[in-house]
Design a binder for these strands. Structure first.
Length: 110
DNA sequence: ACGCTGACGTAAC
DNA sequence: AGTTACGCCAGCG
């Protein structure tokens, strides 16, 4: 149930994240034009539980830390999903995060 | 109805 | 250079 365009926009971008890539809340927020609302982006992910097809595990904070893994059904699910896509996660942190980082404002470049 | 909190990030001190 | 405070939007107490 989408109640606001902001949430919808976030979901749209997250769904566009390529397989084996990750992005950050701030990147999505910046792409939407409101970089200060990065917090709300994370909150939108919380609402993504109701919407299938939202790879919330591919969205981490700007440090590449899996800060939101505890919000999944199982805390290990996020890490497992990332590893299955070829992303190495160590100590709740993505290895080579800057290399795997997928910036919508650059990749989509619109 | 009012206020606090929360998967973050940036600015200011 | 490290720490503290604030902004953002929506959900919940």
């Amino acid at each position: 149930m989408i109640t606001s365009v902001f949430f919808d926009s976030v979901f749209q971008v997250v769904k566009l994240i390529p397989h084996g890539r990750v992005t950050s809340y701030g990147a999505v927020a910046s792409y939407l034009g409101t970089k200060k609302s990065s917090r709300t982006v994370g909150y939108a992910m919380n609402a993504s539980h109701s919407i299938p097809g939202i790879p919330a595990h591919r969205v981490v904070n700007r440090n590449g830390q899996l800060t939101g893994k505890m919000h999944f059904a199982n805390p290990t699910e996020m890490e497992e999903s990332l590893r299955k896509e070829g992303i190495i996660v160590e100590n709740d942190q993505i290895v080579d995060f800057k290399t795997l980082f997928w910036d919508p404002s650059i990749e989509l470049a619109i």
